[in-house]
């Protein structure tokens, strides 16, 4: 509830007091949903350790995770930001094509396999990050590598 931004009649009234100076600053990700979805598996591939660390910290913080896990949270954000920076640096065109495709297809990953293959290839060649879906049944082609897609509309 309280995380919803209060909006009043044609005014935005948000408490904008910054964090105190003794807490290190970190730049937020600032990416919208489609680029995040496009980059998610690469974020997962590079930042798994930080992500797991943060989630474990939150679980074990006994309800004080928001205050006690800020250090881990900054690491998570920096790592995810580094992935997005690298994508922008090395695979800008492929990245852009893929998330534009996601925007145009209701963020359905199975309708954007073409741009996704190009992006995956570029990312693997340049950043050595590979998209893997955990817990895929053994002996089956992972769904993002299949030639035929039943659900793809084109």
């Amino acid at each position: 509830m309280a995380s919803r931004q209060p909006r009043f009649n044609q005014q935005v009234l948000i408490d904008t007091t910054p964090l105190p100076n003794d807490i290190p600053k970190v730049k937020e990700l600032g990416a919208s949903s489609a680029p995040l979805l496009s980059a998610s598996f690469f974020i997962g591939a590079r930042c798994k350790a930080y992500n797991d660390d943060y989630m474990m910290c939150k679980t074990e913080a006994n309800g004080r995770g928001e205050l006690d896990c800020m250090k881990e949270g900054r690491k998570v954000t920096r790592c995810a930001a580094s992935v997005i920076d690298d994508l922008n640096k090395h695979c800008l065109q492929e990245f852009h094509n893929h998330w534009q495709c996601l925007e145009n297809h209701n963020q359905q990953l199975w309708n954007c396999r073409g741009p996704e293959r190009k992006l995956n290839k570029c990312v693997f060649d340049n950043l050595k990050l590979e998209k893997t879906i955990p817990d895929t049944p053994k002996g089956e082609t992972p769904v993002h590598l299949r030639k035929r897609n039943i659900f793809a509309s084109h």
């Binding site: 995380s3 964090l19 970190v26 937020e28 990700l29 995040l36 979805l37 998610s40 598996f41 974020i43 997962g44 930042c47 930080y50 992500n51 943060y54 989630m55 939150k58 995770g65 928001e66 896990c69 800020m70 881990e72 949270g73 900054r74 998570v76 954000t77 995810a80 990953l109 879906i133 955990p134």
Partner: peptide
């Protein structure tokens, strides 16, 4: 899994 990979980053931002 795409969402699972994104949860920590989004949660960290919200918590901050």
């Amino acid at each position: 899994w795409a969402r699972i990979h994104l949860i920590p980053a989004l949660q960290a931002e919200e918590d901050r």
